[in-house]
Amino acid sequence: MKLNITKQSGIYTLTSEQILPISLDKAWDFFSKPTNLDKITPEEMGFTITNNPPNETYLGQIITYEIGILPMIKANWITEITHLVHKKYFVDEQRFGPYAMWHHEHHFEKVGEDKVKMTDIVNYKLPLGLLGDLFGGAIVKNKVQSIFQGRFSILDKLFPS
C-alpha cells in the first residue's frame, strides 16, 4: 500500500497504489461496476448512489451521489466517466459537487498470475481559492487520505491474500 498527497498551484494530487490478489478480469469486473463504489467507501462518509447506474461503466456515464461532507451536512455530487480503456483505466470527473475540480483516474495493471496493481490518481481543487485552502485545505486533505486508507482496509477484507 502506497499513499501520498501533494499540492502544487492550488491543486492537490493523491496517488495511491494497492496490489490485490485477484486477476485483472476480476478487478475490472468489480471496479468498473458503479454500484460497488458504495462497498469500498468508508461507512462514515454517508455515501449513497442516488441514480440507478447500469452494472457496467461506459464512456459518458453520469453517476449521482449524496455524500457527507460535515457531520449532519450532505452534498450532492455528480460525476461523468470521461475516459475509458477496457481493463486498463477509466476516469471520473466532477460535473457538480463539493470541489472546484475533481479528476479521478483508476488504473489497473496485471503484475502477476493472479495479482493486479490498482493505482488511483486524484487531482482536486477546493472551492473559494486561497480561502478554501486556508480554512479547509488540511481538513479536506486528511479526509481524502482517510477515505483511501479506509478503502485499503476494505479491499484487504474483500480480497484477502
Rank of each mutant, 00 (worst) to 15 (best):
A27M: 15
N142G: 12
E105L: 13
I49V: 08
T35K: 00
Y12A: 00
T82Y: 13
T13K: 01
G97C: 00
I69P: 05
L155F: 04
P21W: 07
Y12K: 01
K7P: 07
G132M: 11
W102H: 08
I69V: 15
N55F: 07
H86L: 07
Q61Y: 08
K125H: 10
I5W: 05
D120P: 13
D25C: 04
H86C: 07
D156N: 11
A100V: 00
T48F: 05
I11S: 11
L158A: 01
L14N: 00
M101W: 11
T41R: 02
H86Y: 12
T35L: 00
H106A: 04
E44P: 02
S32M: 03
Y65N: 01
P127R: 00
G150P: 15
D114H: 13
I11D: 10
P160F: 13
F47V: 09
L134D: 06
L70R: 07
G112A: 10
S146F: 04
F47W: 13
L158C: 03
K7S: 12
T6F: 14
S16C: 08
K7E: 15
Y12P: 00
W102R: 02
L37A: 05
L134W: 03
F96I: 02
K33V: 03
V140L: 10
E113I: 06
S9Q: 11
N52T: 14
N36V: 05
S9A: 07
P53N: 08
G136W: 09
I81K: 06
Y89A: 06
G10T: 06
K115P: 05
V85M: 06
P98S: 00
K143F: 12
D114M: 14
P53T: 10
Y12I: 02
M45I: 05
Q8V: 11
G112H: 05
L37N: 04
K88C: 06
T50H: 14
K125A: 15
E109V: 06
T57R: 02
P42K: 03
W28P: 01
K39V: 01
T50E: 10
L70A: 12
S32F: 04
F108H: 03
T41K: 01
R95M: 04
K117N: 09
P98V: 03
E80Q: 14
N51Y: 08
E113Q: 10
E105A: 05
H103V: 04
L37I: 12
D38R: 08
K125N: 09
L128D: 08
D29I: 05
I81W: 10
N36F: 12
I11N: 06
S23R: 00
K39I: 02
S161F: 12
T82R: 03
Y65D: 01
A27D: 15
L131Y: 10
G60F: 11
Q8H: 10
S32E: 12
S161M: 09
F108C: 01
N36T: 10
L130N: 12
K2Q: 14
K143A: 14
V85I: 14
I78C: 04
F135S: 06
A27S: 15
E93V: 02
N123L: 05
V116T: 07
A27L: 13
A75H: 08
D156A: 09
M72G: 01
T82C: 08
T50I: 14
W77V: 00
Q149E: 13
D25M: 09
I11G: 08
K26N: 12
D92I: 03
